[in-house]
Design a protein around this nucleic acid. Structure first.
Lengths: 211, 211
DNA sequence: CCATCAATTTGAACGATGTTCACATTAACA
DNA sequence: TGTTAATGTGAACATCGTTCAAATTGATGG
């Protein structure tokens, strides 16, 4: 059950052990099932130990969130590029929503402003970098230069593009598909059948021009 | 401080008093600042009293959520209709996001599936009815018949339209505008200047047809 | 008018949580 | 090898949601 067994008094690398244990707990039981004491016990350590490595529960969860943003960014980066802007943007959005659907607890964590410290510099950078690929795909679709996407005026089309994926992701983890569909397997069929058609309706392929 | 003073042993209408007190607490301190004991104290009652009227904290918060959905629905219903589908849809979306921006705690509540009972029949109906006007506006924009919007296949365009507003609302209460803009008053300027242009870019007016 | 019953409310429990702190242990280093 | 700073312990503490026997009162029927 515990992440790391221990024979000596000191742990060795309790900091990362706590982060790993916390991610596992949130994966299994959701953010609402996470407690600092569970994480400590899972790392084989007393309840007071984490205080020496993190600034309270918020500090630990912030470190976990950084880890999750990097995972999300890696998944989006790994998605194939077809060279066709519309399809690439749809692929990015599909990846974003799929990540949320497959990791609802972790996605909820990175949206819980009350649980993590969004003023943390590392977290801000990780959250920006996670969306770099998505933002570039959106910029390509709308014919914008992809430079200076962050800390600048948020272009209307790109804000709209970000909102679509973010909104769909929240709708999925809030169970809205189950309310709007009559399927026995709401999330699965939503991701595989409904979502692609939604994305196609949102960002259709450019119509060919007759000569 | 307490919502209702009391001279007799029994309260009279503790059930609604608890709902009103809870809404006030969430307005002032957010969902994360809400505790059942605070609500009981605000209603001038002992910590164990709410159990006789609600099925635990989740039951009380579900009742509050129903109240909030009705407020949201009333605000969307009160928005003017211009007869121009594009503008009406933008107006509805602006109203939706504005409600979230002005009532972040309450909007967070109605999205917290872990805190409220989304299988509750009254809550489901309230959540549906709150979005009726928005759904009709989206249906008009996309040329759909507005019948049977609920419990049926969610049309791709309408799902997209719902996702945009929902995603923008979440982005606002998650503080994303503050990360993406350099304004001292992130939410205010976002709602008043950036958001309209985002919505216009999402659902532009139909282009006039030359004769 | 009164007695009985059911509905409410109390207040003290209980277990669990995050955090703190004096103390124990040990790794790192002079 | 001895000293120091880092790391972990375990017992506190306040607060939380929940439960339950006892207390109080409104309502009902004689």
């Amino acid at each position: 059950m515990s992440v790391t067994a221990r024979e000596s008094y000191h742990h060795g690398d309790l900091k990362t052990a706590l982060i790993v244990a916390s991610e596992a707990i949130i994966r299994a039981e959701g953010v609402e099932g996470f407690t600092l004491r569970k994480a400590a016990k899972s790392a084989g350590v007393s309840p007071g130990a984490p205080s020496h490595h993190f600034n309270g529960t918020k500090g630990l969860l912030t470190a976990v969130a950084i880890r999750i943003f990097k995972q999300l960014g890696a998944e989006l980066d790994a998605l194939p590029s077809s060279g066709m802007p519309a399809q690439d943007l749809r692929t990015q959005a599909l990846g974003y929503v799929t990540f949320a659907a497959r990791n609802p607890g972790l996605f909820r964590l990175i949206c819980r402003v009350d649980l993590i410290d969004f003023k943390d510099a590392d977290l801000m950078q990780a959250s920006f970098e996670a969306l770099t690929h998505y933002a570039h795909a959106a910029a390509a679709y709308f014919g914008h230069e992809p430079t200076n996407l962050h800390h600048r005026v948020f272009r209307p089309h790109m804000a709209s593009a970000m909102a679509t994926a973010h909104g769909l992701a929240h709708m999925v983890i809030e169970g809205r598909p189950a309310l709007l569909f009559d399927t026995p397997d709401p999330i699965g069929t939503f991701i595989e059948t409904a979502l692609p058609s939604i994305l196609l309706a949102t960002w259709p392929d450019p119509t060919s021009i007759d000569p």
